[in-house]
Design a protein around this nucleic acid. Structure first.
Length: 353
DNA sequence: AAGACGGGGCA
DNA sequence: TGCCCAGTCTT
């Protein structure tokens, strides 16, 4: 697809379909800035009332700068990502004092203000000052990836550079404000993440994703390491000088290494609840001597997103049936296990030896 | 390069 | 319930 063709058609679409929004009726960099910060990671429907509150309460950068941080935060309450509010306030003070109330007017100068990165600097520079610099936000990634069939990962440094360069190539330098907003609005309303309106899209004959049914895989993103919190409740079972060890399997942390019998939860739970609910422990419990509930899980270890709690229990006799991953190893032999990394660490930590 | 930061939409 | 959304700053 020709760059000129894309730019022309997306602007045409924008003229006919754009929403009427308060920050579209002004070029005041203060208000554009305010709207851009509020709309970071935030849908218009959620951000709009906050924008109105802020404009009413702080009609200009001096009003915002002279307010207390408490008041700014109170107005921001419920919107999330609260460092945005703190940086907003900090930046307002800088503009008010260092720049004497005159907003920086170039991409490079804007980027120096706290809370203003690549995207926001480009947005303000283009919308308020018609600087010929393309914005690259989530909408732009999506629209360009689909339209031009680009499978470079949008969350890699190379991918980001590539998309930024493409967006700047496509940019209509005669009307950067309109072009940038057109692409973003098109992404927000028409070329949506889910259920894009391809059947009524004026690009559907030329869009690579539509022609190849790739809407659901573009934009492509590198699998992000999802860091959910994990709570490991370890029951260290001892019988004489044998320890019940667990060989970890599957595609998970510490695969192939040994640890102890483990009850995993996605959140903190009451230990009584934990002990009563677990089937295996119900089987073990009758065999356990010397359970002092006062000492339950008093050892805590932290590893990345894992919080591990430990309890040691002494068995009166060995259980008849235990899961296959679990075996008793004599403490003397522990050092000779195939990969004793975890074990030795845990053992020295808890002085079981 | 990877993680933290939040609330809302949606399956 | 848990995944997804995706700018900026920090480590």
């Amino acid at each position: 697809m020709e760059a000129r063709y894309f730019s022309k058609k997306v602007v045409e679409w924008y003229q006919q379909n754009k929403r009427s929004l308060p920050w579209r009726n002004t070029k005041d960099p203060y208000k554009i800035w305010l709207s851009e910060i509020i709309l970071q990671q935030t849908r218009v429907s959620q951000g709009l009332p906050y924008y109105q509150d802020f404009v009413r309460e702080f009609p200009n950068v001096h009003a915002l700068a002279s307010a207390s941080e408490q008041k700014v935060l109170r107005l921001w309450q419920g919107l999330g990502y609260y460092t945005r509010a703190r940086n907003l306030h900090k930046a307002a003070k800088e503009v008010s004092t260092k720049h004497k109330g005159v907003f920086p007017s170039s991409f490079e100068e804007l980027k120096k203000l706290p809370g203003i990165g690549e995207y926001t600097a480009a947005a303000i520079a283009s919308i308020s000052f018609e600087e010929a610099v393309a914005v690259v936000d989530g909408n732009v990634f999506r629209v360009l990836a689909r339209m031009f069939g680009i499978d470079k990962p949008i969350n890699s440094p190379e991918g980001k550079k590539y998309f930024s360069s493409l967006a700047n190539q496509l940019l209509d330098k005669k009307q950067p404000a309109t072009f940038n907003q057109a692409v973003m609005e098109f992404g927000a309303l028409h070329c949506t993440p889910k259920n894009p309106q391809c059947s009524t899209c004026s690009f559907n004959a030329t869009c690579i994703a539509n022609k190849n049914n790739l809407q659901s895989v573009l934009p492509y993103k590198l699998a992000s390491k999802k860091s959910r919190r994990r709570y490991f409740y370890y029951i260290v079972i001892r019988k004489g000088n044998s320890l019940l060890m667990n060989l970890r399997k599957g595609n998970d942390i510490w695969k192939g290494l040994y640890d102890f019998y483990l009850i995993e939860k996605s959140r903190l739970v009451k230990t009584e609840h934990l002990l009563n609910d677990d089937l295996f422990l119900k089987k073990l419990k009758p065999l356990i001597s010397d359970v002092s509930t006062s000492g339950l899980f008093k050892h805590i270890l932290s590893h990345q997103n894992i919080q591990a709690k430990f309890i040691t229990l002494e068995l009166a006799k060995k259980p008849v049936a235990i899961p296959e991953n679990l075996r008793f190893y004599s403490i003397k032999k522990v050092g000779q296990l195939p990969k004793p990394v975890l074990i030795s660490r845990f053992l020295s930590d808890f002085r079981l030896l």
